[in-house]
């Protein structure tokens, strides 16, 4: 009962975040990069959350930062799932050398530390948003592949899949009708988890200067830009950090709730 209330609150928060991300250009009081006042001003009516290190309105930057971070993280997660799940199901359905090739390839990719890999690729290819999404998706899809393959192999061992095999069904039938519906709860839960990892990963990339490029706002970059303020007892760097934390906690709490719900035994009619 208690966890349901908590999940509802977290769900509400995520809805707010999504709305803020979509509506940021319309509801933000100032422009994304507009210099509105002096740096690190106090919280006033004109600037409800103060200003940042260059004197831009903090509330505006937070709205845009959330928008950019959520957009890139969501895009990257979605792409990693499409790629990872499709390859994983290919491996599970055809097994044999296709499975070996894909699985060992993923092993090789996973043996390279993610952050270092991302830093190298991004410093060569530049950090436009499409490149950022592609690199993050490619790195994350290896983890998705691992999970989806394990789930699919379990399903492939069940009798109803054997029946479909005996009928001579094709790959798309297996993917769409036999496997996907039966692993959906686990994949959805993993999606939420991967999304929050992606948001954190993007924030660390931005913090290192290889994420979303200034002057565009993103949460990780904002922490870095305003880091010095912490020495003066100003809350500016804490706000984007808090936002990252809240999004992560909310998404994970929802995932947790979903997992627990789907783990409950199905009541027989």
């Amino acid at each position: 009962m208690k966890s349901r209330w908590f999940a509802a609150i977290c769900g509400g928060f995520i809805v707010l975040v999504v709305l803020a991300a979509i509506l940021a250009p319309f509801i933000a009081p100032y422009g994304e990069t507009a210099l509105a006042a002096d740096p690190w001003e106090k919280w006033t009516l004109a600037h409800p959350l103060g200003t940042d290190n260059l004197g831009r309105d903090m509330l505006t930057r937070l709205l845009f930062g959330t928008r950019n971070t959520v957009l890139v993280a969501f895009g990257a997660t979605l792409a990693s799932f499409v790629v990872g799940v499709t390859l994983a199901f290919l491996a599970a359905v055809f097994s044999g050398w296709i499975d070996q090739l894909l699985s060992r390839g993923v092993d090789i990719l996973m043996s390279i530390p993610t952050l270092i890999m991302a830093l190298v690729v991004l410093s060569v290819m530049g950090t436009s948003i499409p490149v950022l999404i592609c690199v993050m998706a490619a790195l994350d899809s290896t983890r998705v592949f691992r999970l989806a393959r394990a789930l699919a192999v379990d399903v492939m061992a069940l009798d109803f899949v054997e029946t479909a095999r005996l009928r001579g069904e094709g790959f798309w039938w297996f993917l769409r009708r036999e496997i996907l519906p039966n692993v959906m709860p686990s994949l959805l839960a993993e999606f939420g988890l991967r999304f929050s990892f992606a948001a954190l990963f993007l924030s660390s990339l931005s913090f290192l200067g290889l994420g979303i490029r200034p002057p565009h706002a993103d949460l990780g970059g904002m922490v870095k830009e305003n880091a010095a303020a912490i020495g003066f007892g100003i809350a500016a760097p804490l706000l984007p950090a808090l936002m990252i934390g809240l999004i992560t906690v909310a998404v994970n709490a929802l995932v947790d709730w979903q997992l627990r719900r789907s783990a409950q035994p199905v009541r027989r009619a």
């Binding site: 069940l158 009798d159 109803f160 054997e162 029946t163 009708r177 036999e178 519906p181």
Partner: peptide, 10 residues
């Protein structure tokens, strides 16, 4: 097959 529980796609 033997077990109708796993022989049908849920």
């Amino acid at each position: 097959q033997q077990s109708p529980d796993v022989a049908l796609n849920p």
